Structure formats: C-alpha cells, structure tokens
Amino acid sequence: MNLIAHLVEQLDWHWQHQLRPRLAGLTDDEYFWQPVPNCWTVHPDGDVDFVHPPPTPEPVTTIAWRMAHVIVGVLAVRAHSHFGGPPASYESWDHATTADDALRQLEDAYAHWTAGVRALTTADLDTPVGPAEGPWADRPMLDLILHVNREVIHHGAEIALLRDLYAHTTTKEN
C-alpha cells in the first residue's frame, strides 16, 4: 500500500470536489462579510485580528480570517518549515486584501504543501517533525499530515457555510 498516495488523495479529493469548487466566484463582499458584529477579520490594510490567548467566547471569524489561517498557519508555514517553501509567518505575511488574491495565495500554499507531501518517502512518515512544530516536535510527520488534512477540511467546511449564510441572508429573491 502506498500510504503517501492515500494521505495526499484524502486532502486532494476534498480540494478538487468540495473546497475549491465552493470557492469559485468568491467576491470581496463575501470575503469581508461579518455575519455578527465584532468579527475577527483581515482588514483592508492587511492587518489581521488576533490575540493569544483568544477571548472567551472566541470571536466569530470572517471568510477572510479563516482563509488567512488556512493559507498561512495551516499550509504555508508548514510548507516552508518542512519542504523549503517560501518563507511564511503570521507576522510577516502579506495578507490578501481581496478575494482573488486570497484564492491565489490559497492555491499557492496548497500546491507547495501537497508537492512536499508527495515527495516524502514512507520512512519520512515516522520522522519527528522537529522544533518548528512546537508541541508537535516529537510527533511523526504522519501525524502532522493528518492534522493538516483535518484543518483544511474543517476550515473549508466553515468557509462553505459562511458562503451559504451570506447567500441566504444578504440577497433577496426577485
């Protein structure tokens, strides 16, 4: 069994058949839409709302915020740390201020991450991920890949739901 192919297939199936099609036609209005007051978002100047630890309850986040999280924290930082992708951190990232830019960033980050996973060997899956992953440092690469898959699928579903809510609450039927 080719375990790496299965790991890539899990995320790639979701990307090709669910997430990426659901992002087609994303507008700037949807990208920045706040379904409730005081959402965390990416601002027009590229600043991103965030504090650690987050307040309780945690704020609702916009599509822009959720995409920034997936682009930077889930994919790009890890593609850089483990596969030599472009440098990435929340602090230095040029956060997308349009839906089109966010989609391009998402596609780039996804491509870097999946290319890196495809290049792994089965033996690499047992290798600890190292200090770049903080509390995950001693965990095997297999665990990190499964975590990234879960994060992309989970946040992708949230983004799809926000698009549905936007479509059903901000437009009127003729």
Rank of each mutant, 00 (worst) to 15 (best):
His52Val: 13
Pro53Trp: 03
Pro53Gln: 05
Pro54Cys: 06
Thr56His: 15
Thr56Ala: 15
Pro57Ala: 05
Pro57Leu: 02
Pro57Glu: 08
Glu58Pro: 15
Val60Pro: 12
Thr61Trp: 13
Thr62Val: 02
Ile63Phe: 03
Ile63Val: 08
Ala64Thr: 08
Ala64Tyr: 08
Ala64Phe: 09
Trp65Pro: 00
Trp65Thr: 02
Arg66Glu: 15
Met67Asn: 03
Ala68Asn: 11
His69Phe: 00
Val70Cys: 03
Val72Leu: 04
Val72Ala: 08
Val74His: 07
Val74Asp: 12
Leu75Tyr: 07
Leu75Pro: 01
Ala76Cys: 06
Ala76Gly: 02
Ala76Ser: 02
Ala76Thr: 01
Arg78Asp: 12
Arg78Gln: 10
Ala79Gly: 01
Ser81Phe: 13
Ser81Ala: 15
His82Phe: 14
Phe83Ala: 02
Gly84Asn: 04
Gly84His: 07
Gly84Pro: 02
Gly85His: 05
Pro87Cys: 08
Pro87Ala: 09
Ala88Glu: 08
Ala88Ile: 06
Ala88Met: 08
Ser89Ile: 01
Ser89Asn: 00
Ser89Trp: 00
Glu91Pro: 00
Glu91Gln: 10
Glu91Phe: 03
Glu91Tyr: 06
Ser92His: 12
Ser92Thr: 13
Ser92Trp: 14
Asp94Phe: 09
Asp94Asn: 14
His95Leu: 04
His95Gly: 06
His95Thr: 07
Thr98Ile: 04
Thr98Phe: 02
Thr98Val: 03
Ala99Gly: 04
Asp100Phe: 09
Asp100Val: 12
Asp101Arg: 15
Asp101Trp: 12
Asp101Ser: 14
Ala102Met: 03
Ala102Glu: 00
Ala102Leu: 00
Leu103His: 01
Arg104Pro: 08
Arg104Asn: 12
Arg104Asp: 14
Gln105Ile: 07
Gln105His: 13
Gln105Val: 07
Leu106Pro: 00
Leu106Trp: 05
Asp108Ala: 15
Asp108Leu: 13
Asp108Phe: 14
Ala109Val: 00
Ala111Thr: 12
Ala111Gln: 13
Ala111Trp: 12
His112Phe: 09
Trp113Cys: 00
Thr114Pro: 07
Thr114Trp: 11
Ala115Asp: 13
Ala115Gln: 11
Gly116Glu: 01
Gly116Arg: 02
Leu120Thr: 05
Leu120Asn: 04
Thr121Gln: 11
Thr121Phe: 07
Thr121Trp: 07
Thr121Asp: 08
Thr122Ala: 11
Thr122Gly: 11
Leu125Glu: 06
Thr127Glu: 14
Pro128Glu: 05
Pro128Ser: 01
Val129Phe: 06
Val129Asn: 00
Gly130Arg: 00
Pro131Ile: 15
Glu133Pro: 09
Gly134Tyr: 09
Pro135Tyr: 14
Trp136Ala: 10
Trp136Gly: 08
Trp136Asp: 07
Trp136Arg: 11
Ala137Ser: 09
Asp138Gly: 15
Arg139Gly: 05
Arg139Gln: 14
Pro140Val: 00
Pro140Glu: 04
Pro140Cys: 04
Met141Gly: 02
Leu142Asp: 06
Leu142Thr: 03
Leu144Thr: 06
Ile145Arg: 00
Ile145Val: 10
Ile145Glu: 10
Ile145Tyr: 08
Leu146Tyr: 12
Leu146Ala: 13
His147Met: 10
His147Thr: 07
His147Leu: 11
His147Gln: 08
